[in-house]
């Protein structure tokens, strides 16, 4: 088997390229390899679909500003402000 055919059947490499593609443009060769692979591999097509879905779930559940329904407890906050006030009075 030459390297080219090997890659067509290589799911490890294909899933790597699927992940890389989400953040960085692939080279022409990489694109060709991945497309050839996906054309013949339904498992990796499914992987790709699920991978993109997981990204969406993460964006929803782990938004970069955090979840609005999460709060610190009031007791902790009160003590924290007291601590800040103390430190300010030192100066």
């Amino acid at each position: 088997m030459n390297t080219f055919t090997k890659i067509i059947y290589n799911c490890r490499k294909a899933t790597f390229l699927i992940e890389k593609k989400q953040f960085s443009p692939l080279s022409t060769r990489e694109k060709l390899e991945l497309n050839l692979h996906l054309a013949g591999c339904s498992v990796c097509r499914l992987f790709q679909q699920q991978s993109l879905l997981i990204n969406q779930w993460i964006k929803k559940r782990f938004p970069s500003q955090g979840n609005a329904e999460v709060y610190l407890d009031e007791n902790f906050k009160e003590k924290l402000q007291q601590r800040i006030n103390q430190e300010m009075n030192k100066n």
Partner: peptide, 28 residues
């Protein structure tokens, strides 16, 4: 305006931390 920091930003900063660290104690 440090007198207002906790009331203005404590929850916000905590939320920011908790999605990135995932451990309450450490985030506090």
């Amino acid at each position: 305006n440090p007198n207002q920091w906790v009331i203005n930003y404590a929850d916000y900063l905590y939320r920011y931390a908790i999605v990135r660290i995932n451990q309450e104690e450490q985030c506090r």
